[in-house]
């Protein structure tokens, strides 16, 4: 495991304007994540988990503070610059899978590769779908797949472009416990194989316990940051 710093967060806050006045969603937060580390961010609804994930992944910017992703200062870049950093470093897995309904499983996995101009998009996507056990579902559309299968396609899509950091937003949130279990196994297997840095948000104890480290948020602040026992 490399000990290079993948993510460095320095005193970020997030405040939004509402009709009732300014609302502080994140109080000053600082943390750092090493490359290859797996981190679970947990907390009650409204604790600021999703906002934090958005900022860490460069989808959003903090009101104050700085975020470095793989050495790039996201807060100093404009949206185009952040897009480039995301393209080079980031992958996502979403609670609601976010598969494009008009594309087949194979095309969904191919899309990020094609957007990066990868000439081997098709064969790579097929490999990854095989890896997640969906080699017989290549031509199926999302609505023809079960929830678990859809999330496997999403995982294949995320890993296919071999991101340095993978952000997952409640990856098992829409799945039953059995299916969720299988998805967790798959996620950590691939993570281990590829040495990806994994940052995920979850409510699930099972999932959080598999991560090397757990950060608990409450009311926009980190209340606990502990290295868990290695679960995987």
């Amino acid at each position: 495991m490399s000990s290079a710093l993948m993510l460095d967060v320095r005193a970020i806050t997030k405040t939004v304007n509402t009709q009732e006045g300014d609302l502080e969603i994140l109080l000053p937060i600082s943390l750092s994540v090493n490359a290859g580390e797996s981190v679970a961010i947990t907390g009650a609804s409204g604790s600021g988990k999703s906002t934090l994930l958005g900022i860490l992944a460069g989808l959003d910017i903090p009101s104050t503070g700085e975020v470095y992703l793989n050495g790039n200062c996201l807060t100093a870049l404009d949206e185009e610059g952040r897009a480039k950093v995301r393209a080079d470093n980031v992958g996502f897995i979403f609670q609601s899978f976010q598969l494009l309904p008009g594309l087949t499983a194979l095309e969904n996995v191919m899309l990020p590769l094609e957007l990066r101009g990868n000439k081997q998009a098709k064969s790579l996507a097929m490999d990854f779908l095989k890896h997640v056990g969906l080699e017989k579902r290549l031509g199926h559309y999302p609505q023809q797949l079960s929830g678990g299968e859809q999330q496997r396609v999403a995982i294949a899509r995320a890993f296919a472009s071999q991101p340095k950091t993978l952000f997952a937003d409640e990856p098992t949130g829409n799945l039953d416990s059995n299916t969720g279990e299988k998805i967790i196994d798959l996620l950590f297997d691939l993570n281990r194989e590829q040495g990806t840095t994994l940052i995920l948000i979850t409510h699930e104890e099972r999932l959080a316990s598999r991560c090397q480290r757990r950060i608990i948020l409450a009311a926009g602040a980190i209340v606990s940051d502990s290295n868990a026992e290695l679960g995987a």
């Binding site: 949206e79 980031v90 996502f92 957007l115």
Partner: peptide
């Protein structure tokens, strides 16, 4: 809308 949001999260620029 979703497709574009996804593309942008994957690092595709507005111009692209």
């Amino acid at each position: 809308t979703n497709q574009v949001a996804l593309m942008k999260s994957l690092g595709v620029s507005a111009n692209r």
